[in-house]
Design a protein around this nucleic acid. Structure first.
Lengths: 225, 225
DNA sequence: TAGATTGTTAATCGATTAACAATC
DNA sequence: TAGATTGTTAATCGATTAACAATC
């Protein structure tokens, strides 16, 4: 009621704005924990590196949230972003792969702050199935479709080797997830209604490698000049 | 010599093109392993989802690499992208954090394909220091500056808890790295000449959550209509 | 009120797309 | 040659920026 209706149906966020909004969450959570009541776009610029103008533009997609002369109510802004990202209610997630990476993900401390809950962990290895990691019993991947009737998870995370990724993706889709986070170094095929986000460690390194290389990277033949 | 000089000094890749180029690498490596000699921009569109026009534009930044009527020489294209990303020679990398995530990263199978080599692993925990993970002895983080005199790594990877991240980043910078990959859920301060790439799992989930949410996410009050 | 900061507009900037001449 | 596909151009599209009136 008090929250402005904002963008009407169909009017969605520009992709770059969406990605930045997700990154503002972390920062707002920290500010809130530190007890900050209000924050200005200028202060957010100092913290995030995103310009104040850009920040205000991004936040304006969510409605009129700021107070002129004051700034943004930290808690209210965090809530509103969470609402738009659809992470303002608890959301079950399925994790496939209970190896090193899967275990590391299970231990990740941030899930709760974003209201995600790893509801179940699956693996293919009989030696791992049945064991318990952080209070969660590892199940057989064969049970994933049946299990998700209970959990209703919309997101599945792939932490499996590359050669198993497509098969696991197909099973997760069959289990009804609508989005996949893929940590495996393999490109996934999925039906168009299922969104896939590839997390590519090595690509990050490669991008960084370019960025820290000296200005004329393709120096060929006559290197000295 | 035979390779066109391409963009002159200072003319660098647009950021979106750079990020896509890094992602083409994986695909080209797979094609090469599968024995493909040539690939057309249309075929790459089918594999990567990036439009043929966009692909040709991206690749044109690297020089004239294709053969009209034929397509691109897979091996040559991969080599050229590697050259531009500055991953055509072996590159040492420092890893800090030998916990679950650090171990998972060490086990990652793709490093060699991108010519990265984890030269050394560091941790703070005396119980872990001195142990061996995948043939690599875990060293004390206190040794990082001295150790990198030997390794000359330009990139450091942070796989440590959030509260240690800034301190570790400072030490890595002191050790002479020019780029940081940060897996810790904390925003890092670094001098402007040091590039930082944040890898944020949970942000990926949040973005996906938005993308799979129903078109009118901020339905407030009158939900039924 | 005076000072501060938002939300929005219009201008700028840059990226994507489509089309096609060049050419293998 | 005829068919195919590139590399590049120009047009379109969308995102960023800067400026400022609105207003707390």
């Amino acid at each position: 009621m008090s929250i402005p209706a904002g963008h009407a149906e169909g009017a969605r966020l520009p992709q770059p704005a969406l990605e930045r909004l997700a990154s503002y969450m972390r920062c707002l959570i920290e500010l809130e924990q530190a007890g900050a009541a209000y924050v200005s776009s200028q202060e957010l610029e100092n913290i995030t590196g995103v310009s104040a103008a850009q920040l205000r533009k991004d936040l304006s997609y969510l409605g009129e949230l700021g107070k002129r002369g004051i700034g943004y109510d930290v808690a209210r802004l965090r809530e509103r972003i969470a609402e738009v990202l659809d992470i303002s209610h608890e959301q079950n997630v399925l994790l496939v792969g209970a190896g090193r990476l899967g275990s590391a993900l299970l231990a990740y401390p941030g899930w709760r702050l974003y209201r995600f809950r790893i509801a179940a962990v699956f693996d293919r290895d009989p030696k791992i199935i049945g064991t318990t990691i952080r209070r969660l019993k590892v199940r057989s991947i064969d049970e994933v479709v049946e299990a998700n009737e209970e959990f209703g998870a919309r997101i599945g995370i792939l932490a499996v080797p590359a050669w198993e990724a497509q098969n696991v993706a197909d099973r997760l889709v069959a289990a009804g997830v609508r989005g996949l986070i893929n940590f495996a170094p393999a490109r996934l095929q999925a039906p168009p209604e299922v969104k896939v986000r590839e997390v590519c460690f090595i690509c990050e390194l490669a991008i960084l490698s370019y960025q820290i290389s000296d200005p004329a990277p393709p120096a060929e033949g006559d290197a000295a000049a």
